[in-house]
Design a protein around this nucleic acid. Structure first.
Length: 470
RNA sequence: GCGCAGGUGGUCGAGUCCGGUAAGGCCCCCGACUGCAGAUCGGGAGAUCGUGGGUUCAAAUCCCUCCCUGCGCUCCA
């Protein structure tokens, strides 16, 4: 399996540190507001990565931090007249609900920054002892000039970094030194050897990762905007304090989700939250949209752009419904097998896995699913496929679906009363059709459509499916 | 200014690392099937691969110039 490593700028053969175990850390959100579709893009990408690693037999531990102490949280909370922790808990809950709605269930542990203050303090102490950090009146800072590898991830040198959007704290030795501990009296604040205060942004991730994984682990992910300064700072902190390098074997970064070619932002008015998205689209439609583009490439979001994956998915669902219909024994003709077909299935699966092995090439993997869809349709049309083969196809789709997090099955809910009733209606309607009572038949079909039950008539048989209410 | 990505048919988007004249989806057109609709199948249209140069028998792919877009440049996924 090959993975593109931001650190080397190349695809590298994936070899975990501990044989079969893979430790993944992905930067989680700062919980000061609703999560947006850009977050969704990144976390869906890593969800699929975790899924695939598991599928490949690795024992995956996926860790994500929750930044619940931060200037933005404090500012927002004071605007709303609640405590920063109340605000953080509120949006953390919303975040977890959003992830759940998107079908992201693979994170093993969400770790809050505020619950790792002792580990953070411990790491800062080590950095001071080793001479990488120093204390001033305003806080504790990391001295970037003491860490010779600084800039290796973003491929920049300290000299390159001359522009600042924010005026550097005047007590710092170098303008690029970053904060480890901020001396502040206002809440939330904790006691430390340097007085009351709160941790800087970067230190929580290394302290948390070190707690659960130790100073070296396999994969660290996040969106591209975190490469600098955040991940650069993490490397500096961890490798300086532990003396071991590399901190992370493979750095993975997702491309941005843009809207009309621009970064999504509230001020531009092109902002969409996950909740707003899911009010209008099925989670799988968005997931398919995300997976249609390689995780490292930028993706341009628009509502029109979501129409394409919607129809693409429909094409897959249609085949699955056809197969289920055939397997329900509506038509016994399709019984003769074809060995060539079985080979085709094995071939399709291998190609799919090859695509995923090559740095999680989901767009290619999806295109291979469509190749398979076309092939299966052709075999069905030629009536050259056995029940067993159809069952294999069905299972293969479920397997692909589990890897990608898409539901590529229609579910066996035929026991439901609703389904039985609809079957009954179809049966009655079939009698009308036999009598060529088209007017009444069409009326039933149209009335069912109003109830989001779609009938599709074939020669002699009718299939149906239900649209979910949105 | 510096760093990192990207620019491929109407549209979305693989392929670039490992040169051998471009995968797949959506849209569109024709035909088959169908009482109609839908789905499906077969066929088809549509690509100066951002620009200009170079290397090569051969370049989307390697090298160089330039243009454009996005991101980062010190607490944004």
């Amino acid at each position: 399996m090959m993975i593109y490593n931001t650190l080397s700028g190349e695809k590298e053969l994936f070899e975990p540190i501990h044989k079969n175990r893979v430790n993944i850390f992905v930067c989680g959100p700062t919980v000061y507001d609703e999560s947006h579709i850009g977050h969704a893009r990144t976390y869906i990408a890593f969800d699929v990565i975790a899924r695939y690693l598991k599928y490949r037999g690795f024992s995956v531990f996926y860790l994500q931090n929750i930044t619940d102490v931060d200037d933005k949280i404090i500012r927002r909370a004071s605007e709303l007249g609640i405590t920063p922790i109340e605000l953080a808990r509120r949006f953390e809950k919303r975040y977890l609900e959003d992830m759940c709605a998107l079908g992201i269930h693979n994170v093993n542990l969400y770790a809050r920054a505020t619950e790792h203050i002792p580990e953070i303090i411990e790491q800062i102490k080590t950095l001071i002892e080793k001479g990488f950090a120093y204390e001033t009146e305003t806080g504790v800072y990391f001295d970037e000039t003491k860490f010779e590898d600084f800039g290796k991830l973003s491929n920049q040198t300290i000299e390159d970094l001359t522009e600042h959007r924010i005026e550097p704290d005047p007590t710092k030795r170098n303008p690029g030194d970053f904060s480890l501990w901020k001396k502040r009296e206002e809440e939330p604040a904790w006691d430390s050897p340097w007085g009351r205060g709160r941790p800087g942004w970067h230190i929580e991730d290394t302290a948390i990762a070190n707690t659960y994984f130790g100073p070296q682990y396999d994969l660290h992910g996040g969106a591209k905007d975190l490469i600098f300064p955040h991940h650069e700072a993490e490397i500096a902190q961890m490798e300086a304090s532990s003396g071991k390098k590399p901190m992370v074997r493979y750095w993975m970064h997702t491309g941005f989700l843009n809207v009309n070619g621009e970064k999504m932002s509230k001020s531009l008015g092109n902002f969409m939250t996950i909740r707003e998205l899911l009010e209008r689209y099925e989670p799988d439609v968005f997931r398919f949209f995300v997976l249609s583009t390689h995780y490292r490439s930028p993706i341009n979001f628009s509502e029109e752009a979501l129409e394409q994956p919607k129809r693409s998915l429909e094409r897959i669902y249609n085949l699955i419904r056809t197969i289920d219909g055939l397997l329900d024994g509506m038509n016994e003709e399709y019984m003769e097998g074809d060995e060539e077909f079985s080979e085709k299935l094995i071939d399709a699966k291998n190609k799919f896995l090859d695509a995923m092995d090559d740095d999680f090439n989901t767009p290619l993997a999806l295109s291979l699913i469509f190749d398979l869809v076309r092939a299966v349709n052709r075999y069905i049309d030629d009536k050259k496929v056995s029940r067993e083969a159809l069952r294999d196809v069905k299972h293969l789709f479920i397997e692909f679906g589990e890897i990608l997090g898409l539901k590529l099955s229609v579910g066996d809910s035929k026991e439901d009363l609703t389904d039985d009733l609809i079957d009954l209606i179809i049966e009655i309607r079939q009698k009308l059709r036999d009598k060529k009572d088209w007017e009444f038949s069409d009326d039933i079909r149209s009335r069912l459509r109003d109830l989001n039950v779609i009938l599709e008539d074939g020669a002699g048989i009718s299939n149906y499916y239900m649209l979910k209410r949105v």
